[in-house]
C-alpha cells in the first residue's frame, strides 16, 4: 500500500521541559502524497532538518500527530515497533559519507537490510543490485568506502538507504559539497529512482534551480513554521515575498524579472532556461534572428 504522510498541528521542542527549551516546529500541517516530489526550502535554522526527522519517527511530535501510512505517531508513541517505519521511509542525511564505516563498499550497503533481519547472503545480493541502481561500478564494491571520490561516496550512502527498499526517500541536501557534474548526476539519479521505482521524494535543498527543475510541491519553512506551500510556479511568482524571507529565485526566473525591466513581457514567469528562451525568441527583432 502506498504511504501517505500527514502532519496535523505538529509542534516540536528541543530540550522540552528544561530552561533551554527551543521550539523548532510550530503548528505544522502538511501532506505528502505517494509519488510526489516535494522540495523543502527555507533558511538555515528554519526547522527543515527537524521536520524531516518526523517523517520516519526519528523524532516524535511534542504535540500534534504525524500519520505515516496507517501508523499514528504522537508524543505518547513508544519507541518499540517503529522499525517498520524506518524501512518504509529512508532518510539520507547531510554528508552521508560520514556514516560509511565498513571495510568494503558492498558490506556498507548491505549493513542496513541486515539490521532489519535480512540474511547476510540476501543482503549482499540486494546491495549489489542497489549499487547498480545508483551507478556504482562493480569494480568499486570490494574497495574501502574511503577510497571513493566524494560523488561515489554519496552514491554508496544512497544505495545503503535504497537497500531498505523504502517507499519514501528523503534527502537532506544530497548535492552539498559536490561539484556541478556530481550535483547533476545525483539529481538525475533521484529523478530516475522516482520514475522507475515509483518512489516518493522529499528533498531539502538550497538550490532553487533544482526546485524549479524537479519538484511538483514546495514547502517553505521559516522560524519553525510552514510559511508557504504550493507548486514551484506559485512559490516563485512572488519575488518580493521571497526576498522578504531571504529566499532566492531560480536563476532563469531571476533573469526574466530583470528582462521585464528592460521591456520584455512574460505571460507566465519562466522557471527554466528553456522556458525563458521560448518566451524571449518571438520578442526579438528580425535582425537578431539568423537566416541560415
Amino acid at each position: 500500500m502506498a504511504t501517505d504522510i500527514t502532519f496535523e498541528q505538529v509542534d516540536y521542542w528541543y530540550q522540552a521541559g528544561t530552561p533551554f527549551a527551543v521550539q523548532a516546529l510550530k503548528n505544522i500541517d502538511l501532506q505528502i502524497t505517494p509519488g510526489s516530489f516535494t522540495a523543502v526550502i527555507g533558511q538555515t535554522g528554519s526547522g527543515k532538518s527537524t521536520l524531516i526527522q518526523h517523517l520516519n519517527a526519528l523524532l516524535k511530535p511534542s504535540s500534534g500527530t504525524v500519520k505515516i501510512g496507517d501508523r499514528v505517531i504522537n508524543n505518547e508513541t513508544k519507541n518499540k515497533h517503529l522499525k517498520p517505519l524506518r524501512k518504509k521511509v529512508g532518510i539520507v542525511f547531510q554528508f552521508p559519507e560520514n556514516q560509511l564505516f565498513e571495510e568494503t563498499v558492498i558490506k556498507d550497503i548491505a549493513f542496513g537490510p541486515q539490521n532489519f533481519g535480512i540474511s547476510e547472503t540476501d543482503a549482499l545480493v540486494l546491495a549489489k543490485r542497489m549499487a547498480g541502481e545508483v551507478g556504482l561500478d562493480e569494480a568499486l564494491l570490494k574497495r574501502s568506502p574511503f577510497d571513493l571520490s566524494g560523488g561515489q561516496m554519496r552514491r554508496a550512502a544512497i544505495a545503503g538507504v535504497l537497500a531498505l527498499e523504502p517507499e519514501v526517500l528523503v534527502l537532506d541536501e544530497p548535492t552539498a559539497g559536490l561539484d556541478p557534474r556530481g550535483r547533476l548526476e545525483i539529481m538525475q539519479l533521484v529523478t530516475r529512482l522516482r520514475q522507475e521505482q515509483n518512489l516518493t521524494i522529499v528533498l531539502i535543498t538550497h538550490q532553487m534551480d533544482d526546485v524549479a527543475n524537479y519538484a511538483n510541491q514546495v514547502i517553505v519553512m521559516g522560524h519553525g513554521e510552514l510559511i508557504k506551500q504550493g507548486t514551484p510556479r506559485k512559490i516563485f511568482s512572488d519575488p518580493k515575498w521571497l526576498e522578504d524571507h531571504q529566499l532566492g529565485l531560480p536563476s532563469a526566473t531571476k533573469m526574466a524579472y530583470e528582462l521585464q525591466q528592460a521591456g520584455f513581457t512574460f505571460k507566465t514567469m519562466p522557471l527554466t532556461v528553456e522556458e525563458l528562451a521560448d518566451q524571449l525568441t518571438p520578442q526579438l527583432s528580425k535582425g537578431a534572428i539568423s537566416h541560415e
Binding site: 525568441t281 518571438p282 526579438l284 537578431a288
Partner: peptide, 24 residues
C-alpha cells in the same frame, strides 16, 4: 532557436543589454 547571439562571453548584465537592443 536561431537567434544570432554574440560569440564572445557575456555576463548576465551584458546579455541583458544585448537582448534589450535586439528587442522587437
Amino acid at each position: 532557436r536561431h537567434v544570432a547571439v554574440p560569440q564572445s562571453y557575456l555576463d548576465e548584465r551584458g546579455l541583458i543589454d544585448w537582448l534589450r537592443t535586439s528587442r522587437l
